[in-house]
Amino acid sequence: MSEFEIPPPPKGGAGALLPPDAGRDRPLFIVAAILVFLACIAALGARGAWQQSQRWTEDLQTSLTVQVRPVEGGSASEDAQRAADIAAAMDGVANATARDRAHAERLIAPWLGTENIPDDLPLPLIVEIRLEPGIEAPLDALREAFDEAGINASVDDHSRWADAVRGAATRSQTLALALLALLAGAAAAVVAFASRASLAARVDVIDALHLCGAEDRYIAILFQRRFFMLGLKSGAVGAIIAVIVSLLVGTGSQAADASFFLPSWENNPFEFLLLAIAPLLAGATAALSARLAVITDLGRRW
């Protein structure tokens, strides 16, 4: 039995072999948090852009517009209704709605105004057809059926500008992904750089442990664990701030178009996944670069 009081084990287990942060790691913490924040914002924005362009192309692909022109002695609105019924009966058509004359007047109002349209001006009426998703538009069948029923109708599948919209959608998706990749890459590089820098200040610890017979793995794990926790914490802070910002931005703008490329919070799994993954990635990057730095440093010693 020793007559001296043996000090209690230090708090923090093996981790206590490393010096406490003492503010030395604050730059790394802040930089990592900012970059994770930006990457999350970019991811949420990219998600918005992606969804928006997805919606455009889907709309275009699943809708047809039919113009029903009045024929001599016939009623345009009756023809429109018949056309809608014919279309609705077809395979692959989800629904077909005949729009009335008021709708047609509204469409031309920007050019002619509301006052100047004579009641008897023959206006083409619109029938909107929604297709079931994934169905090839039955253009020929529709045209044939309208001809047979004696309806003067033209069917438009938007193909003239669908390609342009699709192109724009693809470009904005690519841009969003590229932006995300760039920010994620920059975040990883900076986190790696900063963890190396704050490791350099602890060479004395690596030295002492190494010279006391610690195995490389033992030393690497100490630093790895420390930097993983650091990256995790700062990543969590960055991700949470990104969520707050996107919630704020989301409440401000109602129209979907206005939030294009702006982060928005929609309570879907993607967001929760992002929130979980971003800090983990930051932690893993910091841990990995700390490990590489320690192993490289140790490797130089023998």
Partner: peptide
């Protein structure tokens, strides 16, 4: 090894410094 410049770890107590080789083993 007793280093000329000691190389003690100042964030550990005297006890933990002395015990370091046992601990890392």
């Amino acid at each position: 090894v007793v280093f000329q410049e000691f190389r003690l770890l100042n964030h550990l107590s005297v006890f933990d410094n002395a015990a370091l080789p046992l601990r890392v083993a």
